[in-house]
Amino acid sequence: MSTPATTIFSPALAARFDKLVTLYPVRRSALVPMLLYSQDEVGYISDAVVEEIAVRIGITPLDVRNVLSYYSMLRTKPVGKYNVQVCTNISCMLKDGYGILDHCKQRLGIGHKEVTPDGLFSLEEVECIGACCWAPAVQINYDFYDDLTPEKMDKVLEDYRAGRGKETL
């Protein structure tokens, strides 16, 4: 249980982690946020992330993996710079969420959990993202797009391609 001598994280993130573990009655409570924030910075949860977080929390790497593999947003492989997550759950499905998914597949030329060759986009069919009344909805990284049509979707993708997309972190 300690701050490691060297860190793979940026100084800002390392400092944030130092603080995070002190916020809760037990250090371990910081585990899930730490994994998520590491993923935001590193792109995915690498072995090195697992090792360092294990040290920071004071648990075994196995324990870190047990937890991280439980949560569907956490991944151990890189995805595209922009991860397009199309909801197809019931409300979105009724509003042609599958149509949006197919449209994205076509436009991006990739399937579920695949990455475009340039590494810019990846695509994922996801469960309900809490935007049911504004269906069909898509999340790109952490940003929501709702009331979509294939045309609107194209515009959103175009914005990201051109570097104009929202990037909430």
Binding site: T60, L62, D63, R65, N66, S69, Y70
Partner: peptide, 9 residues
């Protein structure tokens, strides 16, 4: 020993 865990869900 804690050498076994449960992964995925």
């Amino acid at each position: 020993v804690w050498a076994l865990g449960v992964q995925n869900r």
